[in-house]
């Protein structure tokens, strides 16, 4: 059924820390690696070594330059995948029932054997979380690694999404956002986690932690100093004097 559940028992999702993400794209690679060989159709590439390579990805990392009114620009790396919205517009537009939101944990999935590849769900998603696989003709999206998180064949520390497991900066956190006492919920409360495009009314489960204020990023024109050692590094001699000064001036004239 492509009507949304009234209530989900849990809200499994990700919390992404924009302060600590270093933009290494390891989550992109581990996501593609896991999901191309597990749940559903593989994530195909077209012309991977050709002139115009492209492929299906469930997670992509953007980079933004944010210029405050005063001070130097910030560079923010911005991973983006399915936000497993409470009010997921991609689910209700599906004509076949292939798209659904699970009652037990709120994960939004595609049943690929029912998908006719009409692409309407990707149109309905404001975040670009769904991509049509060119080779398979079905819609692909983040499954929150549903085949890892409940997988008893994996060691317990691996039972989390591949992107979270691999992140070297610990910028990605996985947990139940319906439980106010969960580590992820506390992190969101502490750091003021936000929804992307709240005006779209999708009520995303995934939250983004905004970058903390940066107190060391003032340029020399703002603070007058580059470093605490700067006064000691200032040139002592403003110009050569005596014979060297004469030599310098003469050589300049030649």
């Amino acid at each position: 059924m492509t009507t949304l559940p009234q209530h989900t028992d849990r809200k499994l999702g990700l919390v992404i820390d924009l302060d600590t993400c270093v933009g290494c794209h390891a989550c992109v690679i581990s996501c593609k690696g896991w999901n191309t060989e597990n749940y559903g159709a593989p994530l195909s590439d077209q012309s991977a070594y050709g002139a115009d390579p492209s492929g299906t990805f469930l997670n992509r990392v953007h980079s933004y330059e944010v210029q405050p009114e005063v001070g130097t620009a910030h560079l923010v790396h911005f991973p983006k995948s399915c936000l497993h919205c409470d009010d997921a517009p991609c689910v209700t537009v599906c004509p076949t029932g292939a798209s659904y939101k699970r009652v037990e944990d709120g994960i939004v999935l595609v049943n690929e054997s029912d998908c006719i590849g009409c692409g309407l769900c990707a149109w309905a998603c404001p975040y670009g979380a769904r991509e049509m696989d060119v080779a398979e003709g079905v819609m692909k999206k983040c499954t929150l690694c549903v085949d890892r998180i409940y997988n008893e064949n994996l060691p317990e520390e691996d039972r989390e999404p591949a992107c979270v497991r691999t992140c070297p900066a610990n910028a990605r956190h996985f947990g139940d956002l319906a439980d106010p006492n969960s580590a992820v919920s506390q992190l969101v409360a502490e750091r003021g986690g936000v929804d992307l495009m709240p005006e779209q009314g999708t009520k995303p489960v995934n939250k983004y932690l905004p970058p903390r204020a940066r107190d060391q990023l003032q340029g020399p024109e703002d603070s007058g100093e580059i470093d605490v050692l700067a006064p000691f590094l200032a040139p002592v001699d403003t110009g050569p004097k005596g014979f060297l000064g004469w030599l310098d001036r003469t050589l300049e004239k030649l």
Binding site: M1, T2, T3, V93, C94, P95, T96, G97
Partner: peptide, 11 residues
């Protein structure tokens, strides 16, 4: 299969 979800889907 596109005939099944008339309750929610305009398509």
């Amino acid at each position: 299969k596109a005939f099944t979800q008339w309750r929610s889907s305009w398509l």
